[in-house]
Design a protein around this nucleic acid. Structure first.
Lengths: 187, 187
DNA sequence: TTTGAAAACGGACTGTGGTCCGGTTTTGTT
DNA sequence: AACAAAACCGGACCACAGTCCGTTTTCAAA
């Protein structure tokens, strides 16, 4: 069944309000109640629509995330199909690093709390699968699932947050680190 | 100045109570108020002593953490000094993986919330430094700080929790993955 | 157009982490 | 022993995520 009109209306209102508040105050200072009030909606509605705080934050990332996924799944090379796996790996990492750093505050807030067992976090799964597939295509020997997880962890929010925000490593150096890592693991 | 006797007494009571509650209910179901009550102490006292929830959990890990640190900093080879760096790297990883998995629930709870900028997390820093030093001793070329971070992230709570708890990868395979990673990065 | 059930709504309510501050205990000093 | 300052104590209090449930809205079948 299609979404009810009031539900659709409120979803739009909520996303608009949330985006505005994030822009104004920064993602970490946006409370769920503030979003509900700004959208002229009850708190319960926010939670029915988005599950929890991380879900709302992730919904704000959804557009950027979809676009990015299309880029590397079906877009032009070297990110998309067509280039040799090795080059796609390098390009994918660099693109992901930039994407992650650009939306880092949102990704941090979208990270499911570890207490919540099973934190699927869809984009992470897709990326890891993509990495494993590129490794396979590149003919890399070894435990590809684990290697893909290693590479995926380099591109994940916790690692990039640590390097970029805490250690203050500039993006270029992080990207160089990625290329080096790919060289050593694949080469 | 030395710690006041009432402060010392309460710290012991709190750690005892917390350890008992963690044993009984599991770390993630222990509330700060429950710890305070079980210790016969006010909530404020818990926070003054341990800063926050993560601080309390980390205090519970302190003994195991210290012991482990001694093992690889000054203990017998291959973990401690004396063995070739390459072997120390391998041994360090395997030991850390076992250590982390053994106390995984506590480490998860001891993880500082990412909102809190600057999450030093002392053990992580020490380990990364140790890794960098072993890499240097092994004569590995490249950006050693970044490589050490990569290795450190393999041994960190987020990565091991993901592999072990979510992906259900058995410890042996994680350890094999470590040896493989060291081979490729160092070899 | 009526109607009834499913879906959505909203805001009071709960649980928990973390803060605050007036009162108490300890400790060094005279 | 008496005192004052420093350290500490405790629990009321606050903020915020997340839940609950009685009420309202939607929509399609009659």
């Amino acid at each position: 069944m299609a979404e009810r009109v009031d539900a659709a209306r409120n979803r739009v209102r909520l996303l608009d309000a949330a985006a505005r508040l994030v822009r104004e105050r920064g993602a970490e200072h946006v409370t769920m109640e503030a979003v509900a009030n700004a959208a002229g909606v009850g708190k319960g509605t926010v939670y029915r629509r988005f599950g929890d705080r991380a879900g709302l934050m992730f919904a704000l990332l959804d557009h950027a995330e979809r676009t990015f996924q299309e880029d590397f799944l079906t877009g032009p090379p070297p990110l998309g199909p067509g280039a040799p796996p090795r080059e796609r790996l390098a390009a994918f990492g660099v693109a992901t690093i930039r994407h992650q750093i650009r939306y880092l505050d949102l990704y941090l807030q979208a990270e499911p709390k570890p207490a919540r067992q099973y934190s699927p976090h869809p984009p992470y799964e897709v990326r890891t699968l993509h990495l494993a597939s590129l490794l396979r295509a590149a003919g890399v020997p070894g435990d590809l699932d684990v290697i893909a997880e290693v590479l995926g962890s380099y591109l994940g929010t916790p690692f990039l947050n640590r390097l970029h925000s805490h250690r203050r490593v500039p993006a270029e150096r992080i990207e160089a680190g990625w290329r080096d890592l790919v060289d050593r693991l694949v080469g």
